[in-house]
Each structure stands twice: as C-alpha cells, then as structure tokens.
Simulated assay, not measured.
Amino acid sequence: MPSATTDDGIRLHYEESGSGTPLVFVHEFAGDHRSYEAQLRHFGRRYRAIAFNARGYPPSDVPESVAAYSQARAADDILAILDQIGAPRAHVVGISMGAFATLHFGLRHHDRALSLCLGGCGYGAEPDRQATFRAEATATAELLRRDGMAAFAERYAYGPTRVQFANKDPRGHAEFKRLLAEHSAVGSANTQLGVQRERPSLYDLTDALGRITVPTLIVTGDEDWPCLAPSLMLKRVIPSAGLAILPNTGHALSVEEPDAYNALLDAFLAQVETGRWPMRDPRSASATITGIAG
C-alpha cells in the first residue's frame, strides 16, 4: 500500500486514481479515504486524484499520545503527501475536519496550494460556541474510550447534520455508518482531543485569512447549521473566496450529494486552471446598498 511518512515519523496511507495535476482530498472526522470514492472515480479521469487517511485512521498509523495530534500537524500531514508524490503544488480539497486542515495548509504552506476547497468548515468556530464545542469534544473522546467505535457510530451517524443523509439515501448512510464503526477508537478519541478541541477559532484568524490570495471555494449545506455563519464569514474575509450552498443538505457533502458536489468542484477547478477565478472587486465592499450615498 502506498504511504507517506511525516516529519515526526507517522506513516499515512493514501490511494490515488488518474494522472495529471495533483488533486488531494482530506477527509472529515467521521470519514476516511473511502469517503472520497466517488471523487476519485470522477476526478481521476482528468487529475491525479489522491485521498489519504489522517493520522489515527488505520491503515495510517495511530499514535497513542494525544500530543501527536494537532491542527498544525493535520495541515503539515497534507504537505507530507505532496512531498511523497513529488508535487510542487496541488489543488487541496477538504470537508469538515479536512476543511480546517486544508485552510491551515493554505495559511502555513500557501506556496504549495494551487487552490483550496473548504466544505462544511466551521464547527465550533463561532466565539459563543467554542466552549460548548470543546466540552462536546471531551465528551466524545470519553464516549469513544468507554463504549468503542460501534456504539459511537450508532449515535454519531444520526446527529442533527447527519439525518439529512439518512433520510435521502438510507443505503448510502448505512455504508457511512458501517465505515465509521471500523475506525480506531484510540485514534478517533485522540483526534477529538488534539485536533478538534484545541484548534483555534476561525474568528481569531481573520487577519491571516484576509491575506489569502489562493483561489478558494467554500461549500456548505443549508442544513449544516454550525457551518452557515462561519462560511459567510470566510466568504467576507478571504478576498479570493466564492461561496456555494447546497439545498436541503447536511454535513457529509461528498457522500450525501456527490453529483452536486462534484459539479461545483469541477466548475471551480476549470476556472482556476484557465486563470478565470477572480479576486474580489473591492468596489463590492461598499458600505452602501446601491453605491449611492444618501
């Protein structure tokens, strides 16, 4: 199995399809590289499409110490994949936890990113939600360690932004739940404590976000409630960002709405590769509605 080794010695499993410009997919907390099967098949026709398992997600290594997990490491692990495949730059696409890693990759290694796509980025980011989110991350880790993955998956798969998937595609949702139950309880608990709970709020990064010039697409479902306001904030702050909202959709974008998600990403990448993705016209930031002062 192909793998990359990080600067702290962690082996990351990856799979790929196709050839051409590298396109790297970064999975969410409840997913793994298999969450991007529809994207590997679709984009592998025109790109070197790559999906990898984060640290803590077998067959990638599962460090026993929480100290081996952090938001910075998650971003740098993407860099390890690029270095392994010999790619000077790549399009990087993430959902949820993977979107945070993608965004931080853009902040830490902007010269290695051709573009960024951030799906479902925002859980716990709002200042008045941070304490609640951190408490939930701690409780989630305790549940994982106490009851194991199968019991956790049975509860987590029916959360408020997952029921949309269950309602519209019971077969797909059943597969999502089955794959989630196969994850490592140790790796998942450590990810909650080291990456999720400790990551900085997006609202504390607005100055850095405002300096991003890499083409950026933000995607969210309109029923992914914790991500709606942060997605709007990211659109306002990042001058190279566009925002797309999928109707009647929750959090698991790539598996819940693969066709709509692929179409958005296809159009975005086509504009980037032809030099047509714009920076925001500063005239659009007028304090007036019509541009005419009263």
Rank of each mutant, 00 (worst) to 15 (best):
A166N: 07
E154T: 08
M149Q: 06
R129T: 09
D128Q: 13
T161A: 14
Y156M: 14
R129D: 06
R146V: 04
L143V: 06
G148H: 03
Y156A: 15
N167F: 09
T138N: 07
A125Q: 10
G172W: 03
R134E: 08
F176S: 01
H173V: 08
E142Y: 01
F133D: 10
A151S: 13
A151D: 12
T138R: 14
K168L: 11
M149Y: 02
R155K: 12
L144W: 10
R171C: 11
G159L: 00
A153V: 08
A153D: 05
R162Q: 15
A166Y: 07
R155F: 04
A166E: 11
A153Q: 04
A137Q: 15
F152L: 05
Y158G: 05
L144N: 06
Q130K: 09
A125H: 07
G148C: 04
A141D: 03
V163Y: 08
T140A: 12
R129L: 08
D147F: 00
P127D: 00
Y158S: 13
G148K: 03
A157T: 15
F152I: 07
F133A: 13
A141E: 03
H173N: 10
A174V: 09
D147T: 10
R162F: 15
R146T: 14
G159I: 05
E126R: 15
A153I: 08
A141R: 10
L144Y: 06
V163G: 01
D128K: 09
T161H: 08
E126M: 12
H173K: 04
K168W: 01
G172C: 00
E126G: 04
D147P: 01
A153S: 10
R145D: 06
K168Y: 08
E142K: 15
A151P: 02
Q130E: 12
E136Y: 07
T132H: 12
F133K: 05
T140G: 15
A150H: 04
R145S: 03
R171E: 14
